[in-house]
Design a binder for these strands. Structure first.
Lengths: 183, 183
DNA sequence: TAAAATAGTGTCACAAACTGACATTTTCAA
DNA sequence: TTGAAAATGTCAGTTTGTGACACTATTTTA
């Protein structure tokens, strides 16, 4: 096991046991059997240990959108379908995702970092949409789609009933029924 | 002049001159003629000096929405009109807002804090909408409205031509024309 | 296989952000 | 004027985060 993974495991364990604020990097490093200095070489700061910088989500959604390049469709619908397409990626790991989410919600620093990660996601989706649509339209669709995903995601981690894909469609329908067309 | 204001002025000046990261709290305090300790009594952390915690924006938008309680209207439209109603509040201060925005965009910590403030705004708007609409509908409308505001805001600080209210309406129309109704 | 490049880690010293405890000053109303 | 309350100063200490350099393990290449 690499030290990066050991640090991530140690950090998660300690954050759950005694809370994020009351866990020092020192302690995380000790539990992982390395030095504090090594922690900061693997992660840019304390909160970084909970976030993967890969943006796999954005990659996946973008790939789907790019793939459907030729299909005639409204941008928001397309983006939401992009999220639906990667929702199976989460299916096995609801428990783990829920635990991680609880840690994040317990601390403002972590919430902030999560939000910044959301911006990266928006940028990805915007970028893939803009091959087909106007740049402002793409950005707005990306932002709305991410909000829909966010809302569906919250519902999903708190429910054992329906899957993420179903929640996504439910929220999208809620949008269509409540917002669309003339008043 | 209260020390809080002196600290804010000093911080803004230094952040513009030498950048956020290269300015220490020590320096800010010295320039303001107080102690580092006093800084941390006025602001919870270094970045806090750039953010007012009043949420005046949220208050204003919420007040408008609550006021239009009886009027029959789609939730997103109502929320956007709420933002339009407070847009004159900004009109005189484009230069200052632009400068502040440039500081924020120069540093991830500040971006994160700005995003967290956005969440507070969303909560306000959601709350005022939910007197009239279903809770999920209210949240979604609030989130979309804040995104529309955000986009209009960016356009506004970079243009001397149109006012914020006009940009808001333009973006809202962009939304209506591109997303609404059946495909 | 031996030598050499390279990636990962340890050690140390230190800057900067932040906090708690207590002393001192300022303010302002009775 | 005085006396309580609010703001500020002082100081010691913890925690986060970084630079510099030495050391070790792993991999590459001759």
């Amino acid at each position: 096991m690499k030290s990066k993974e050991k640090l991530q495991a140690a950090a998660t364990k300690l954050f759950m046991e005694k809370g994020y604020e009351h866990t020092t990097v020192q302690e995380i490093a000790s539990l992982a059997g390395v030095t504090e200095r090594t922690f900061f070489r693997q992660f840019k700061d304390k909160s970084d240990v909970l976030f993967d910088t890969n943006n796999e989500l954005g990659q996946g959604v973008s790939a789907f959108i790019t793939d459907k390049f030729e299909v005639e469709q409204k941008p928001l619908k397309l983006a939401v379908e992009g999220f639906v397409s990667i929702s199976e990626f989460f299916e096995g790991s609801r428990e783990r995702v829920l635990a991680r989410n609880q840690i994040i919600q317990s601390n403002p620093d972590l919430q902030e970092r999560e939000l910044l990660k959301g911006q990266v996601l928006i940028a990805s989706v915007t970028n893939s949409l803009s091959a087909k649509y106007d740049s402002d339209v793409s950005e707005l669709a990306a932002r709305f789609a991410v909000e829909i995903f966010h809302m569906a995601f919250i519902k999903w981690i708190n429910s054992t009933e329906k899957g993420l894909a179903e929640h996504l469609l439910t929220v999208y329908e809620l949008y269509e029924n409540s917002f669309c067309c003339v008043d």
